[in-house]
């Protein structure tokens, strides 16, 4: 049986798709056969971030509607072994996903994969609820600002009350906090919440802190998940998060204000 992981947040633009691509890739790099599903029907961009947009023929909705088989729609990643992508439809809307249809696809994928990573659309409505409904694990992606934290809190409430596990009285979804776009300088200026603030408000265990980084933008423009950039702090932070997700212990990095050296200042690093 595969473990179903939802990357969710409530708010849009916080880094769910970036994180889904990075964490899915990270799990595959560790030798776990992984598929990432784009639940953002109508706004698909996971395939862009993964750099395989030109290879999309069939999508998630085609499979649900039995217009294509799963093996026709799955895209095998060219760089990373054991990594697959199930893209979203560009032309349909979120109502195209039915609970029964999603369940059937997840059941079929479960036979073949160790991890199923679900990239959730923004919001707390149907699309986001569909992405989290069958989850075993939730990675709650949060930016260190009040509105993002509030939306994450709402999503946590939905995980507790409207998921399959909640409705069937099963053990609750395992919750993890992923703080993204963290900027220690702005935290020390008091312009952003600190990791401690976010942890205190949400009261769930911390999986990782991903620094705000130019490397993320560069990586997504190139269609390479940032975790493959071993030089970038954001890439290293995602690797740490994946290790923690697999039960290893990693000290927290990149959360303190760095004293900039002469060259760094010169180069604007």
């Amino acid at each position: 049986m595969a473990k179903i992981i939802v990357v969710t947040s409530g708010k849009g633009g916080v880094g769910k798709t970036t994180s889904s691509a990075a964490i899915g890739t990270g799990l595959a790099l560790k030798g776990h056969k992984t598929v990432i599903i784009d639940f953002d029907v109508g706004l698909r961009n996971l395939d862009l971030i993964m750099g395989c947009e030109r290879r999309v023929v069939y999508d998630f909705v085609n499979v649900i509607n039995k217009e294509a088989t799963l093996s026709q729609a799955l895209i095998k990643d060219k760089r990373t072994k054991d990594l697959f992508l199930l893209p979203a439809s560009q032309t349909r809307d979120k109502d195209a996903l039915t609970t029964e249809g999603v369940e059937a696809v997840l059941n079929e994928l479960s036979k073949d994969f160790e991890y199923i990573v679900c990239d959730s659309p923004a919001g707390i409505e149907k699309g986001a609820q569909m992405a989290l409904y069958f989850a075993d694990v939730a990675i709650v992606t949060t930016n260190p600002e009040v509105s993002s934290v509030r939306d994450s809190d709402r999503i946590l409430g939905i995980l507790q009350s409207k998921s399959r596990r909640a409705e069937q009285g099963l053990p609750p979804i395992e919750e993890h906090l992923l703080v993204t776009r963290y900027n220690p300088d702005r935290v020390s200026e008091g312009e952003m919440l600190s990791v401690a603030d976010v942890e205190e408000i949400l009261a769930i265990p911390l999986l990782g802190v991903i620094p705000e980084s130019e490397a993320v933008l560069k990586a997504s423009n190139q269609g390479t998940p940032v975790i493959l950039d071993g030089q970038a702090e954001a890439g290293q932070a995602y690797s740490d998060a994946v290790d923690r997700l697999l039960g290893e212990e990693r000290p927290l990095r990149f959360t303190d204000v760095q004293k900039k050296g002469f060259f760094k200042r010169l180069l604007g690093g």
């Binding site: 709402r154 946590l156 009261a203």
Partner: peptide, 26 residues
Amino acid sequence: TKPVRSGQQVYAPGDLVVVSQVSAGA
């Protein structure tokens, strides 16, 4: 025993004990 999250509401016909937090918006 779990946090009462933003957007959630809890009603008790008697006394209510929350052994956790009540979030903003709850």
